[in-house]
Amino acid sequence: MTLTRLPARRPEATAPVVARRDRLDKLDLKVSPYLYVAPFFAVFALVGMFPLLYTAYVSLFDWRLGDDTAKFVGVGNYTELLADPQFWNALVNTISIFLLSSVPQVIVAIAVAVLLNTNLRLRTGFRMGVLVPYVASLVAVGIIFGNLFGVNYGLVNSVLDFVGIGKIDWQADRLASHLAIATMVDWRWTGYNALIVLAAMQAIPPELNEAALIDGAGPWRRFTSITLPMLRPTVIFVVITSTIGGLQIFTEPKLFSAMPGSDTGGSTNQFQTVTLYLYQSAFDNQQLGYASAIAWMLFLVIVLAAIGNYFITRRLSR
């Protein structure tokens, strides 16, 4: 599959010109691969890795925005952070929104994939249909759902009122605001993930199902004993990517606020997420050091969650 040390088909080089060509040729073969991968690593190190690591350095200082006299405080920012109720509140909000969105999302995505995995007419049309929310930008989604979940004039409350449930204060109530934000996330990503699951379903060898059919297994039995286990790697993939993205959620809660432009995540921070708190600390309160400490704590949480997810998903779908 790869090539090195090709059989020399050319006759032995005697002329010096040819010898130089050969040397250049070898150099080309040796050096080229590094030249091709170098831009990626160089740029990534510079704009991806270095800022992340430098964040750890900044987090050890009392570093104000626009102030060059940063004061070293050691782990001071971290101890302050661990005692900061607003941080814990934001962390709980983030995890709550994440769970409320990702659990139904995975289940519905699998269900939609099952529906799409039938011998449909207009197959491509249906697949494109479930992907429509993907074209809406996050900011548009935030604004649209902010309107739909409006307290007084929102369509959701009009419907709830009409069927007799009564209006829900989607802004002020903590759980309700999490549900509304989770709905935005799910609306945008469920169809996308359904297509990923569908692809994995179609990659299951048909012989497995045929054999089970001959053994007299019904559709539900075939689904739980063949399809679900075969989907395991894909579900792990979907869960881990949605963990990494979901725990950094920012745009949706920022735009959901009834006070546009505010970064507090509601009047009592009831839907402020960790990234939103990070943003508020850095750019409203101008505490770059403290915000950097938040960034590293979040990084830690993401790593732990990704590892934890990997093991949970592996066990569950075994």
Binding site: P33, G48, T55, Q248, L278, A282, S292, A295
Partner: peptide, 29 residues
């Protein structure tokens, strides 16, 4: 398609960096 010393290690590095939340580096950036 090319074989070179360290290619496997470097590729593992690429895969690992896919999971790095670089968004958290916004302050130094």
């Amino acid at each position: 398609k090319l074989r070179f010393k360290g290619s496997n290690v470097l590729f593992v590095l690429v895969v690992l960096t896919m999971a790095v939340p670089t968004q958290l580096g916004i302050i130094p950036l």
